[in-house]
Nucleic acid binder design. Structure first.
Lengths: 154, 154
DNA sequence: GTTGGTGCAAACGCTTTGCATCCAT
DNA sequence: ATGGATGCAAAGCGTTTGCACCAAC
């Protein structure tokens, strides 16, 4: 996944929404139900969803919500590092909760579940690559695809 | 980058277009000037371009070319493994020539140049990740961002 | 009370599609 | 000759935008 600013603060929102609330406020942003619901939809499912799927799920909880709000909420949440974009073969308009710290996602191609792992193999080779190519490496996308235990049985 | 079927056949088209011609024919596809020009635009620049940029460049050589043809040509070329999609922060509608074999791209954020490297660090850790997560790893997407030598000076 | 956020609907622009024509084989 | 590919223009649709209203602070 994209390696941008990592958020290492407590993200145990859900039961106790204090930390996420203060997190928004520190950025001068309001903590709106729409933003919280977008986040909780992604967090609770542990899956990646398209914008339309998120919109559908959010409307079940906040019926009046418009699509534009979903677009704007996702943009904000990505900027804050709370949500990541999931890159697929045919487009990158899917979204999932961001892992904490420098982790990378493994995506189940069966059920869309996203888990993440901490072992980043890029640092180890970036020195070598710099030497060979002359590039300074600043950033990387890494995403794995596979099948989770449940989907392997199908 | 995305690991799909790799094309290890000769791809020295340019001066001698024989190999690419037979490559198309083997798939039951026609070798049209439009497809060749899309390919050569990407290959000669060594950079990634948006669809509109490709269209503009192709029209300089084949003035009558329509956008739809660019869309269709890119789709075909990606299917053939001759072109890859370049994934950026804010979308994945950029394209570059595909490397030969299992290589991954390094993208210069300054000049859009794309070079590729063969050292794939994923195989080494996929066993460990399978054990830890229960996922079978089938595929991965890796792309590095940095600055090439020329762009470092700016 | 302020100000940023939301909802709605229109506008926008990228992408796809249908069809007649063309051209690579 | 013929079937796939192209060009054109219209249709489609996901995304963005403007503005009035609302609600978080």
């Amino acid at each position: 996944m994209e390696c941008k600013k990592s958020v290492d603060s407590d993200r145990g929102f859900g039961q106790n929404q204090k930390p996420i609330k203060t997190f928004f406020h520190k950025q001068g942003l309001k903590c709106t139900p729409q933003r919280l619901v977008v986040l909780s939809v992604l967090k609770e499912s542990q899956k990646f969803f398209s914008i339309m799927e998120i919109h559908k799920s959010v409307k079940k909880i906040l019926p009046g919500t418009g699509v534009a709000t979903i677009y704007r909420a996702l943009e904000t949440l990505i900027d804050l590092g709370l949500v990541i974009r999931v890159h697929l073969e045919d487009g990158c308009q899917s979204f999932a909760v961001a892992p904490i710290g420098h982790h990378h996602p493994i995506v189940c191609i069966g059920c869309k579940r996203v888990v993440d792992f901490a072992e980043c193999p890029i640092e180890a080779i970036s020195g070598k690559l710099s030497r060979k190519t002359g590039f300074t490496i600043q950033n990387h996308f890494l995403q794995l695809f596979g099948k989770c235990r449940a989907c392997q049985k199908m």
